[in-house]
């Protein structure tokens, strides 16, 4: 087991390094010049050169690449025109081209917002989605089942930006039941935190719950038709034991995989949800950074997103070995 975890983690680290290299060269090697964009229209060559020096973009590309990655692990110093060099401590993701703020502190501010949206949403979508799917499989062909199928069809075809706007139009601007989402910290004001996040949670949860309902229904139906379930019934086990202990356990395993990857993917930034509800999470910052060619912020958001995606994959793989005894590790 330990060997498996170590091997998986090693591959994950290599993958992350490859992603970070590709991303670095794609963005920093693009001939697009952030200095020109920052400088505006009336700008002379000397100002551009000065800005480039401040950004560390006057050096050759391989040097920039090494500096960036060294900064991640040991920190680095930034030369500053006419001022003292600025030291950027260990997990250094450089400075925002726009505000000169350390990117790590931007992420420190943005990530809790994204995490609040995703974790709250995931709790709702997992409970609603899985229980809906399981129950409709057990009550196949009833009105409940048909309603659940309709719900999951609608949800699976409704893009989140469409559903989120419908929510805003109804609850905020139509019925005036809720304020326009505005993030406050959980510890400062728990009620305000819930009020701000309830719409994003529902937007995210509706879309995902529909897919999970669909998936868990078909998984459960497949499991219920297995021979061992028939055997379990035949030896006279109670319905409850058969459904919960034998069927549910087998049906839930593939859903664990997908849930892990979905949550990991969303933790890197729920771009659309954050944009619509104006919540300043990872995705919101990424979208803001793009037109400004703010490479350090773009680079960092891609890296953080890749980190969660890859980490989720490793965790799911290890978890799989625990919950599914058929899986042999090698």
């Amino acid at each position: 087991m330990l060997r498996f975890i170590l091997k998986r983690s090693l591959i994950a680290i290599l993958t992350l390094w490859a992603i970070s290299s590709v991303t670095f060269f794609v963005f920093f090697a693009l001939p697009a010049n952030p200095a020109e964009t920052m400088c505006g229209k009336n700008c002379d060559v000397r100002t551009i050169a000065a800005i480039q020096k401040n950004l560390g973009m006057d050096k050759p590309l391989p040097k920039q690449y090494l500096d960036y990655h060294a900064g991640l692990f040991v920190g680095r110093d930034f030369e500053r025109q006419g001022r003292e060099a600025q030291h950027c401590p260990a997990p250094c993701l450089a400075y925002s081209f726009r505000t000169n703020e350390p990117v790590t502190s931007i992420i420190g501010r943005a990530w809790p917002v994204t995490a609040s949206i995703v974790v709250g949403g995931a709790v709702i979508w997992l409970t609603v989605g899985i229980s809906l799917g399981m129950f409709s499989a057990l009550r196949r062909g009833t009105v409940f089942d048909k309603t659940a199928i309709a719900f999951s069809l609608v949800g699976a075809s409704m893009p989140i930006y469409v559903f989120a706007i419908l929510l805003l139009a109804t609850f905020v601007f139509g019925l005036h039941l809720l304020p326009y989402p505005h993030f406050v910290g959980l510890l400062e004001d728990p009620v305000g935190w819930v009020k701000a996040l309830i719409l994003p949670w529902f937007a995210l949860a509706f879309i995902f719950a529909a897919q999970y309902a669909r998936l868990s229904r078909s998984q459960m139906l497949e499991t219920l038709s297995e021979d061992y379930i028939r055997t379990a019934r035949a030896i006279g086990l109670s319905k409850r034991t058969v459904h919960l202990k034998h069927a549910f356990r087998a049906a839930i395993t593939p859903i664990v995989t997908i849930a892990g990857i979905d949550i990991g993917g969303a933790l890197g930034g729920a771009v659309i949800t954050e944009t619509i509800f104006g919540l300043q999470g990872m995705g919101w910052y990424a979208v803001r950074a793009i037109p400004n060619l703010n490479f350090p912020v773009i680079m960092a958001t891609v890296l953080v997103a890749a980190f969660f995606l890859v980490a989720a994959n490793v965790i799911v793989d290890c978890l799989y070995a625990v919950i599914d005894p058929r899986v042999k590790l090698n």
Partner: peptide, 9 residues
Amino acid sequence: SETTTSGDR
């Protein structure tokens, strides 16, 4: 169609 819904995944 779980692949289709959102850009968030």
